[in-house]
Design a protein around this nucleic acid. Structure first.
Length: 488
RNA sequence: GGCCCGUUGGUCUAGGGGUUUAGGACGCCGCCCUCUCAAGGCGGAGAUCAGGGGUUCAAAUCCCCUACGGGCUACCA
């Protein structure tokens, strides 16, 4: 039975790199007909908190990465919160202590830090000296009397090596002598990551540990622990990490790095799903746009690349636009409503749907929508400087044309895009100018911008009174400008 | 510092000894469409396959070295 897990710690928002790790675990489980397990590693008491937990669960669901076992899903191998498993870790630690595979360490963090610093200064490697390994009983009693809580360290075998046969990277070996006796239980009685993960993965019968490459160097420690505990180790697969455009580990870019940032930016989960699947994995057939089931059907670990990949926002945007185009106006309306609300607009449902129809092909992400369609909501139109330079450059003539346009439109009884177009083109002919001479200034007058959806559709949806008032507004603005120009 | 991992156009990648004048996608540029923009269609520029040594009749593909990038080296995960 294939069993994989995603094990986030609730110490922050769900990072996009974590989402990719979760995704690959999910894809592998679904492809292999296995189980996808969610385990919460909440042993960092200082940084963990409930709000982050909720946020992580909610975001995983939003991505459609439903877990088969874990918080809210039950399962036979719980509890799925590490803080509820302390007894288990303590028993395992005791076992190692009894078998002389671990020992108490009474060094304080301060002492250890000082030692490390000294080692650094003397350019020695900063490993633990092992001085508590042979502590005398009376010394121990003394420390106990002082009320010093010991941590527990694992006794790393002095010689030998650990070989990992990574599913993505192949054989990787580490020499034991490079490893220090690392702590497995903190003095607080809470296990450290390497220890807890090994025990949980064993007890939860995890068959494949698929995680970020940053854990590769931790794996020898864990393998030693499996050995000491007598548990068979799982298979390992270390995923390449995701870099930002500076080729650094994805960190505080301007758009953010947490899933919530992308979500608030208006990216669709299916686009992120597709994009992330292609980050470090390839179906091998020049396929780009892939439905969820298609990705699942083709996913294999050996097609995962070894080299880190740079997160390309532009490609994500493009992919998002592709998925947006597949949506119906009704769907876009549903999805974009919160974004309008956030911008302070309260469009009526019907109207929003019509607006979606007009804009769905030209917005890349939902947060663009209220911004580009602002002219439908704001009474006062701000003219984009570039647009004004381009189409308002002859204020006198342009004002006149807009007045003419206003007249023609005001006379329209049957008001729809066909009649509007006919009227506008008719006026152009009458004036002996290209229709564009009316259309462009009108666009700036109505939207404030040099670009918009088809102008006749815009006019139709904006409705007659608003169109007229905007034409007047622009005409007045231009007349004012013309006067100022004449006075110069 | 030590130990690990990686290196194909700006980016994601295909390709795993001869089929490659290195394929696709994003981005970029141009043309078409057109009331603008986007979308769409068509076309183009862009890679001495990190560098250097080998192995081989033949290397992007196998081996070694170097450089560069990244990760780990916590009583974080």
């Amino acid at each position: 039975m294939i069993r994989v897990r995603f094990a986030p710690s609730p110490t922050g928002y769900l990072h996009i790199g974590s989402v990719r790790t979760a995704l690959f675990n999910y894809l592998f489980a679904r492809r292999q007909g296995g189980k996808f397990i969610l385990r919460i590693e909440d042993t960092d008491r200082e940084r963990s908190n409930e709000a982050f937990l909720e946020e992580i669960l909610e975001n995983l669901k939003w991505m459609g990465l439903e877990w088969d076992e874990g918080p809210g899903a039950g399962g036979d191998y719980g509890p799925y919160f590490q803080m509820e498993r302390l007894k288990i870790y303590r028993e395992h630690a005791q076992k190692l202590l009894d078998e002389d595979k671990a020992y108490y360490c009474y060094c304080t963090p301060e002492e250890l830090a000082a030692e490390r610093e000294l080692a650094n200064l003397e350019k020695r490697s900063p490993g633990y000296s092992g001085k508590c390994m042979h502590i005398t009983e009376e010394q121990q009693a003394q420390y106990d009397r002082e009320g010093r809580d010991p941590s527990i360290r694992f006794k790393v075998p002095a010689s030998g090596e650990v070989v990992i046969d990574d599913l993505i990277r192949g054989k990787v070996s580490f020499d034991n002598c490079l490893l220090e006796d690392f702590i497995i239980m903190k003095s607080s009685g809470i296990p450290v990551y390497n220890f807890a993960a090994v025990i949980d993965d064993s007890l939860m019968h995890i068959s494949h540990v698929i995680r970020g490459e940053e854990h590769l160097s931790n794996t020898p420690r864990q393998l030693l622990l499996y050995r000491a505990l007598g548990y068979p180790p799982p298979e390992f697969a270390h995923l390449p990490i995701i870099l930002d455009e500076q080729r650094r580990k994805l960190s505080k870019r301007r758009g953010g790095v947490d899933l919530r940032d992308f979500r608030m930016d208006g990216y669709l989960p299916e686009a992120i799903f597709n994009f992330l699947a292609l980050l470090g994995w390839s179906p091998g057939e020049d396929l780009e746009l892939m439905e969820r089931d298609d990705v699942i059907g083709r996913f294999t670990l050996d097609a995962v690349s070894k080299s880190p990949s740079v997160f390309d926002d532009k490609k994500l945007e493009w992919m998002n636009a592709q998925y947006m185009k597949k949506k119906t106006p009704a769907e876009i309306a549903d999805l974009s409503e919160p974004f309008f609300m956030y911008s302070g607009y309260e469009p009526e449902r019907r109207f929003l749907e019509e607006l979606s129809e007009l804009y769905c092909e030209r917005i890349k992400k939902l947060s663009d929508f209220p911004v580009t369609a602002a002219c439908f909501f704001d009474e006062h139109i701000e003219y984009d400087p570039d647009a004004a330079i381009k189409y308002f450059k002859e204020p006198g003539v342009t004002a006149k044309r807009l007045r003419d346009l206003e007249d023609v439109i005001a006379e329209l009884d049957d008001y729809n895009k066909e009649t509007i177009e006919k009227a506008v083109r008719g006026l152009a002919e009458k004036l002996g100018v290209a229709a564009a001479k009316l259309i462009h200034p009108a666009r700036v007058a109505l939207t404030g911008k040099a670009t918009s959806p088809g102008i006749f559709e815009v006019m139709e949806l904006m409705d007659k009174p608003a169109v007229l008032s905007r034409l007047i507004q622009a005409a007045e603005y231009l007349e004012e400008k013309n006067k100022a120009k004449a006075e110069q």
